[in-house]
Computed example of a mutant assay.
Amino acid sequence: MFKKVTIQADERGLLFHKGSYVKKLMPGTYHFLLWSKTTVVVLNIAKPFNVDGKDLKLFLHNEDLVSELDIVRVQDHEYVLHDEDGQFVQLLKPGVYAFWNILKKHTFMHTDIRQPELPVEVNRSIIPKLTANVLSYEIASYESGFLFYDHVLQRELSPGKYYFWKGPVSTTVKTIDLRQQQMDLIGQEMMTEDKVTLRLNFVCQYKIVKPLRALEMKSFDEQIHIQLQLTLREYVGALKLDDLLKRKEDVATFVLSRLREKGEEFGVHFLSAGVKDVVLPGEMRDILNTVLLAEKRAQANLITRREETASTRSLLNTAKLMDENQTLFRLKELEFLEKICEKIGSISLTGGGDLLERLNSLLGERKAESK
């Protein structure tokens, strides 16, 4: 009585006697006595070599078997990229692996994860398949990046995309924005030399020119904000309110010059600065409005007096000319008569005398009747 075992062309058999491996069986048909303690494990050579319940090391002493296997050992500090016939298949973690080399060609790329950055030899098109084991960082065109391993600075990164293994070394990338930036001080309360409290809205623009220096400073934006505050207080505190309002444009010049003196320390180039608003307390605003109104009224009165003086002078000059020139005087009479005729339908004059005097007398009588 026999039991038959058939091994196909794409298979190999492993012969065991009493649980111990004996040899490899090639494709064919084999017969074994039913009561014998012989077993055969049939493996598909298109799949990785694996025997359930058996350690791979039990088979490695058989040279005949090993000749048809690719054995790869992955160390604790390694990841191995496994390709079959030039196509990526899987990522191998620490351990020992065996693959049949009969139907497929296997290649293995060893990478040391103690050096986290992926080697340039790694095909970037397979990275989406490695997301569980790879970190990615992207540096924009307007940024500068800095690479840290275990919180120790390694180098500066130019714009681009970078990939790192998740492994025993902690990887961090920090970025600094190199574009023009703006710092706003809104509603900063300050006191002038004459003890007037006011609020300033101020703005300045700057660019980071030494990104590493900016990275080394704790709370970089806050430190620039404080420096801007102190500079403003220094300027405003040395002026009286009237002087400050008159020299408001000079604030920007003073502050910008002081900030540029600190630019090297911050790794920053300050581009411009300016006062947006000066906000006064309500009472002080009312007082200034009253003063302004009085000044404008005085200016209006002055202009009125000047106009009256000019008008009187013009009349005096006209009278002198009429007194010296009878023709001009006669023309003035006719002009006066024309104005009267515009307002009166008909006029009857009798008797002699000066025409202008008689018309004046007539106008006087009509005004009395109208009353």
Rank of each mutant, 00 (worst) to 15 (best):
D10H: 12
R12H: 02
L25Q: 00
P27C: 02
Y30G: 04
L33P: 15
W35P: 10
S36A: 10
K37N: 11
I45E: 05
K57S: 14
F59G: 07
N62C: 13
E63W: 02
V66H: 03
V66N: 07
Y79F: 09
F88H: 00
V89A: 09
Q90N: 15
Q90L: 03
F99C: 02
L103C: 12
R114V: 01
L118M: 08
V120Q: 15
R124Y: 07
I127Y: 02
T131V: 12
N133P: 07
V134A: 08
L135Y: 12
S136L: 11
E138F: 03
A140E: 09
F146I: 04
F148T: 05
Y149H: 14
G167C: 09
T172Q: 13
V173C: 01
L178F: 01
R179M: 06
M183K: 11
C204E: 06
K210D: 13
K210T: 08
L212S: 02
Q223L: 08
Q223Y: 06
I224V: 06
I226M: 15
Q227C: 10
D243I: 03
L245D: 04
D250M: 07
V251H: 05
R258W: 01
E265R: 13
H269R: 08
A273I: 02
V278I: 15
V279F: 00
L280Y: 06
D286Y: 06
T290S: 13
E295D: 10
N301M: 11
N301P: 05
T304H: 13
R306K: 14
E308Q: 12
A310E: 15
S314Q: 15
N317H: 09
E324C: 04
Q326A: 12
E333R: 05
L337R: 04
E338D: 12
K339W: 08
I340Q: 03
G345E: 14
G345Q: 14
T350Q: 13
L356Y: 05
R358A: 09
N360W: 05
E365M: 08
